[in-house]
Amino acid sequence: MASMNDKDYYAILGVEHDADDAAIRKAFQKLARKYHPDINKEPGAEEKFKEISEAYAVLSDPDKRRRYDAMQSGNPFAGASYGSPSQPQGDPFGGMGGFWGWPFGAAGAGRQAGSRRSRAYNPKAGGDVVYQLDIDDKQAKEGVRRGITYQRYVACDVCHGAGSVHADHARTCPTCGGSGHISVDLASLLGLGVMNMVCPECEGSGRVVVDPCEACGGTGRVLSASEVVVDIPAGSHDGDTVRVPGMGNAGTNGSSTGDFVCRVGVPSERLQPQAAQGFQMIGFAMPFIVLGVLLDVLAQLTVIIAIPLLVGIVLVGRGGGVLHHAGTWWRNAWRYFVNGFMNAATIAVFMALMVSCMSGFGTAGYRGGFY
């Protein structure tokens, strides 16, 4: 979700920056009546209602509004005491022109005011980077080494992955008090009770970065080009994977890094989509053939058997033929065949039970006529 820095709550409510509490309340009441989901059924009305409720929850609270105004002006420390008691509020790095300007003075502050930063402290492990590498039959048989250049998130060099340059630890979010949610009381305004929503400053984590890094925006990671050497072992097959630990995406706010996963592709071993679907349909027909033979109802199941069988054969033929492929290709084909067989087997067993039950009822009814 968009952070508090990215939203203009005054514009959302349509009020001036110096609007008093009465004006803010009146603007919210007007918009809330217009966009409340119970009244407005148009697409996007519910999201709009949540947005204006979020804006009102911040601007109607003096402390939250003061903090929001300070953050919008480029100084998130105004009105909050994050440093030690001996540090003056509003400029914990006194004498340096404020953090957002340091060390470049007013020019740095002006540049930062327009940047997109998130103060949310939300450590999450980095995801794996999955890369598809196709090789030929010879390389798959003998093995091959490949150098790969790719894009991934790496730990920020400026803040060393923490997301904060000068502060060692995250702090409890002052907007929500660490709960991760904020509440807006609509009872006195619309008679609708209390509405809870995710805190826009910490984005639900309950903690915030004190001084978001300029380079990474407070996440602790940046997008960068990386290189990795992957050794594909001899005897590899289509679908095998080679994992390189620690070469995936860096986690946010100093969390663990994922792996680089190279997915091996051997086109000669890979079934074309049409052929794969064809083998599945052929497999689908097989249980009904067995059922028809065992229960002597093959003629009645002709349509169920013939359609998937014929369509499957046609698709296999269009998918590259079957004569020039090696054993691995056939093993893959067998897996698709078995998949189709198992899908149809349940239906075939159910039909067999139904036939048996109906036969039993018919016999009982016939015998009952003599008694």
Score class of each variant (00 low, 15 high):
Met1Ser: 14
Asn5Tyr: 04
Asn5Met: 13
Lys7Trp: 03
Asp8Ser: 09
Tyr9Met: 01
Leu13Gln: 00
Glu16Met: 06
Asp20Gln: 07
Ala23Trp: 03
Ala27Glu: 02
Tyr35Asp: 05
His36Val: 09
Asp38His: 09
Asn40Lys: 00
Lys48Cys: 12
Glu51Arg: 08
Ser53Phe: 02
Glu54Gln: 07
Leu59Cys: 03
Leu59Thr: 04
Ser60Asn: 12
Pro62Leu: 05
Arg65Trp: 06
Ala80Gln: 15
Ala80Cys: 15
Tyr82Met: 10
Gly83Ser: 01
Gln87Trp: 04
Pro92Asn: 05
Gly97Met: 06
Gly101Gln: 01
Trp102Val: 06
Trp102Leu: 13
Pro103Asp: 10
Ala106Thr: 11
Gln112Lys: 05
Gly114Tyr: 14
Ser118Gly: 12
Tyr121Met: 12
Gly127His: 12
Gly127Asn: 13
Val130Ala: 03
Val130Cys: 11
Gln139Met: 00
Ala140Glu: 01
Glu142His: 01
Arg145Ala: 12
Arg146Phe: 07
Ile148Ser: 03
Ile148Thr: 09
Thr149Trp: 12
Tyr150Pro: 09
Tyr150His: 07
Arg152Asn: 05
Tyr153Met: 07
Val154Trp: 00
Ala162Pro: 00
Ser164Glu: 10
Ser164Asn: 07
His166Leu: 15
Ala170Pro: 09
Cys173Ile: 09
Cys173Val: 05
Thr175Met: 15
Gly177Pro: 02
Gly178Leu: 07
Ser183Ala: 11
Ser188Asn: 15
Asn196Cys: 02
Gly206Tyr: 04
Arg207Thr: 08
Val208Phe: 01
Val209Leu: 07
Val210Ser: 08
Val210Tyr: 05
Glu214Ala: 02
Ala215Leu: 14
Gly217Ala: 06
Ala225Val: 14
Ala225Leu: 12
Val229Thr: 15
Val230Cys: 09
Ile232Glu: 02
His237Met: 07
Asp238His: 12
Val242Thr: 00
Val242Gly: 00
Arg243Gln: 06
Gly248Phe: 03
Asn249Met: 04
Asn253Gln: 00
Ser255Val: 10
Val264Pro: 01
Leu271Asn: 08
Gln272Ala: 14
Gln274Leu: 08
Gln277Phe: 13
Gln280Gly: 11
Met286His: 11
Ile289Cys: 08
Gly292Leu: 08
Asp296Tyr: 08
Asp296Ala: 15
Leu298Ala: 14
Ala299Thr: 11
Ala306Ile: 13
Ile307Met: 08
Gly312His: 04
Leu315Phe: 13
Gly319Cys: 07
Gly320Cys: 02
Gly321Glu: 02
Val322Asn: 01
Ala326Leu: 09
Ala333Ser: 06
Met342Ser: 12
Ala344Trp: 08
Ala344Lys: 02
Ala344Asp: 03
Ile347Gln: 13
Ala352Ser: 11
Ala352Pro: 04
Ala352Leu: 06
Ser359Gly: 13
Phe361Arg: 08
Gly362Phe: 10
Gly368Arg: 09
